[in-house]
């Protein structure tokens, strides 16, 4: 891959306080990864492995204990300006969609474009129309989230994140809350996005998506990255016992 990574994670550690006096729970342990422009990095692993926590650290939704994260040359720390810049440049799609229920699709997508990117109404309309076309729900522009199916809601959520024109997109189990028949419509949008060259970090249980659209696999267990391989290599010949055990269960 080319020169400088767009995301650079070094020695990242994150623990959660245990319940009561129980020992703290290690969520992310000594993670060091570089992610380059245009890569689709798929993070897989058993539940509780720290995949989502790692992802949430990347835009500062979760604070980390030690180590460093640098995104597009901006270190993620407690400087308000840096944080804001990273929040603008990193789009995120959640498992539970998190659309704003009191706003129409148009308003959901337009809010941050208008308030954060400071675009004019006209530009905002153009961006919204373009993105809804991309995710295939142009006819629902004036609907409220509750009037949409889960798959449609998630596609609006993807459009909302894309409207900020981010450099990186994070997907946190984007299809896990969907009914089976709606998973493919969301995955298709994600695959197209990958084809368009978007840099993506995807936490998912969809091995089909990982194989088809992923460029790299990070296999995590107990907070650590156990394997960091090209997709083809990983599925053909996993190196570690833990990866083998996991793969034998999910495939």
């Amino acid at each position: 891959m080319t020169s400088k990574p767009i995301i650079s994670i070094t020695d990242l550690n994150k623990t959660f306080p245990g319940p009561d006096k129980a020992p703290e729970v290690i969520a992310v342990k000594d993670v060091t990864v570089d992610i380059y422009q245009g890569e689709v990095v798929v993070v897989i692993g058993p539940s509780g492995a720290g995949k989502s926590t790692l992802l949430r650290c990347l835009n500062g939704l979760e604070d980390f204990d030690s180590g460093s994260i640098i995104i597009d040359n901006i270190p993620l720390n407690h400087h308000h300006k840096n944080r804001l810049e990273i929040r603008k440049e990193v789009g995120m799609v959640f498992q539970s969609f998190n659309l704003f229920p009191h706003m129409t699709v148009r308003e959901n997508i337009g809010l941050a474009v208008r308030r954060v990117r400071k675009k004019s109404v006209l530009e905002c309309e153009k961006i919204t129309a373009g993105l809804l076309e991309k995710v295939g729900i142009t006819d629902k522009i004036d609907s409220y989230p509750s009037q949409l199916s889960g798959g449609q809601q998630q596609r609006v959520a993807i459009a909302r994140a894309l409207a900020m024109n981010p450099k990186v997109m994070l997907f946190d189990e984007a299809t896990s809350a969907l009914d089976p028949e709606m998973i493919s419509e969301v995955l298709d949008v994600m695959k197209n996005l990958a084809k368009d060259g978007m840099t993506m970090v995807v936490v998912t249980h969809e091995m089909g998506f990982a194989r088809e659209a992923g460029s790299r696999i990070l296999f995590m267990d107990n907070g650590e990255i156990v394997e960091d391989r090209k997709v083809e290599d990983f599925f053909l010949d996993p190196n570690e016992d833990r990866s083998k055990a996991f793969l034998s269960k999910v495939i």
Partner: peptide
């Protein structure tokens, strides 16, 4: 209000004022 509403506002880069003004408080008042 679900935590996700705060998280989505955060991830979109909304300022704290905008988050309450446009996302959280309209839902709260209803």
């Amino acid at each position: 209000i679900q935590k996700g509403q705060f998280e989505a506002s955060y991830a979109l880069g909304l300022s704290s004022t905008d988050k309450y003004r446009f996302v959280i408080l309209p839902q709260v008042f209803r």
